[in-house]
């Protein structure tokens, strides 16, 4: 508590301190009173009970005091980051949450699957999920902030990172098979480091396999397919081009070779044929023939 990693933390941790202190106070008080009464007025020590039907003053007392306390808690709870107070000079980053990865697009077109931010600058995340996807929730525990991400709609989240370091980004709204693996990284770096990484605001140029790589990142392919040969939800992209194996079609095993026709069909009708041993979990996408050709160029580079 009270780490100063972002501007959102101070108010939240102050509220936690007050609320949890109050909780512990009342829990200890109530339990102590209960145990004391059970001991002091046990049948052995107090064989003759006294009949008391109530007391108006006490009722008022324990109505009014909690009322004042909870109004105080309500007031403390107001210290959240208001959507209406986004600084005008905030750096805007587009966030896409999809089953089961996060991608970030910067003003110059740079795309990444890690969120890299410069220290001390206000950031406004404009978040959405692709059509046909489901709800997600963008959650940075270290910053005490969270906001749901909805298909076809844009929600925002803004904050100012104040300490360099790496932080976890979780998905906090159930989104299917690999919900618990939808973990991203937030890297807060110094201003100069950020400049080296980001370049300037002129649009980035890419050619060759890099174009395909960008498409793969931007469409969340990397959420389920690795590029280093490790097994994730789907088969790895490493060595995909020309790979031979077996498909499961209507419960029967069929041989396949990963050529152009195969890759085209696998992307356009992801649920028609599934590689044996993997779940039928890929969702529909809007990739066109040209995108897929770039992807194939990219896959060829991953041997």
């Amino acid at each position: 508590m009270f780490s100063d990693v972002a501007d959102t933390v101070k108010n939240a941790d102050f509220a936690f301190l007050i609320i949890f202190s109050l909780c512990i106070f009342f829990l200890v008080l109530n339990t102590a009173i209960m145990i004391f009464f059970c001991w002091r007025y046990s049948r052995k020590r107090n064989p003759v009970p006294t009949q008391i039907e109530g007391h108006l003053g006490l009722e008022l007392f324990w109505t009014i005091v909690p009322t004042i306390l909870v109004m105080g808690l309500f007031y403390i709870g107001m210290g959240f980051q208001k959507d209406s107070e986004v600084p005008e000079d905030a750096m805007v980053i587009k966030v896409t949450g999809r089953m089961w990865s996060w991608t970030y697009e910067y003003a110059n077109g740079k795309i990444g699957s890690d969120l890299v931010l410069p220290i001390g600058r206000a950031v406004k995340l404009e978040m959405t999920a692709p059509k046909g996807d489901v709800l997600h929730s963008f959650y940075i525990p270290a910053f005490r902030i969270k906001r749901d991400v909805l298909p076809n709609q844009t929600t925002i989240l803004w904050f100012v990172p104040k300490t360099t370091g790496e932080y976890n980004v979780f998905c906090a709204e159930y989104c299917g098979l690999s919900h618990s693996k939808m973990i991203g990284k937030l890297k807060v770096v110094s201003a100069s480091e950020f400049k080296d990484w980001y370049g300037d605001d002129s649009p980035v140029k890419q050619e060759g396999p890099e174009v395909g790589q960008r498409i793969a990142v931007a469409n969340g392919c990397m959420g389920c397919h690795s590029t280093d040969g490790s097994r994730m939800v789907g088969p790895t992209f490493k060595g995909l081009w020309g790979r031979k194996g077996q498909l499961l079609v209507d419960g029967k095993k069929v041989d396949y070779v990963a050529d152009e026709a195969y890759i085209l069909k696998s992307i356009k009708q992801p649920n028609a044929e599934v590689v044996d041993g993997y779940p039928n979990a890929m969702i529909a996408n809007q990739l066109g023939d040209e995108d897929i050709n770039h992807l194939i160029t990219y896959f060829k580079s991953l041997q």
Binding site: A12, I19, L22, C23, T31, L73, I76, G77, R144, I145
Partner: peptide, 23 residues
Amino acid sequence: FSIGGLTGLALGAVVTDIHLHDT
């Protein structure tokens, strides 16, 4: 039940609920 009720307070306050929601 006291623990249940008291832990609800942090879920009623907006700033703390945002952190705790769906955890």
